[in-house]
Simulated scan of single mutants.
Amino acid sequence: MTNSVDRRARASQKRQRLAAAAAKVLHEQGVERTTLADIAHEAGVPVGNVYYYFKTKDELVRAALSEQTAHLDELTARLDRLPDPRDRLRSLIEAWVGQRDVAARYGCPTGTLAAELGKREDGTLDAEAGAVIRRLLDWAAGQFRQMALSGQGGPEGLRHPDDLALTLVAGYQGMSLLAHALRDPEVMTREGARLLGWLDSLR
Rank of each mutant, 00 (worst) to 15 (best):
D101W: 06
R100Q: 12
A104M: 09
L113M: 15
L125Y: 07
P46M: 07
F144Q: 03
G118P: 08
T56W: 12
H41P: 08
A170C: 09
E67Q: 11
L92F: 03
A141S: 09
D87H: 05
D200R: 07
T76R: 09
R190S: 08
A131T: 01
A40V: 06
D58Q: 13
H27P: 00
D200N: 14
H160G: 06
W139L: 02
E74N: 11
L136C: 09
A21Q: 03
A114E: 14
W139S: 00
V45S: 15
R100F: 00
V47Y: 09
I39E: 03
K24P: 04
R88L: 02
H27Y: 01
K14A: 10
N49L: 12
P83A: 09
M188C: 14
R78I: 01
R159N: 11
T112F: 02
G111H: 05
S4W: 04
G153Q: 03
T35V: 11
E116C: 10
A21N: 07
D163N: 08
E32T: 08
Q99S: 08
D87S: 05
C108L: 01
T76E: 06
A63M: 07
N49A: 15
F54I: 02
I133R: 15
Q146D: 13
F54R: 11
A170R: 06
V45R: 07
V25K: 00
T56G: 13
G98D: 05
D6M: 09
Q16H: 09
D126A: 07
E116F: 05
N3Q: 11
D73I: 00
D58Y: 10
L136T: 12
A19T: 00
M175K: 12
G157M: 08
T69M: 15
L177K: 15
E156W: 11
K119W: 04
D84E: 14
R134C: 07
A63S: 10
T56A: 07
R88H: 05
L79I: 04
D122E: 13
C108N: 08
A179D: 04
P83N: 06
V47M: 10
L149R: 14
E128V: 02
Y53M: 02
Q29C: 08
N3H: 10
A63H: 10
R190G: 12
Y106K: 11
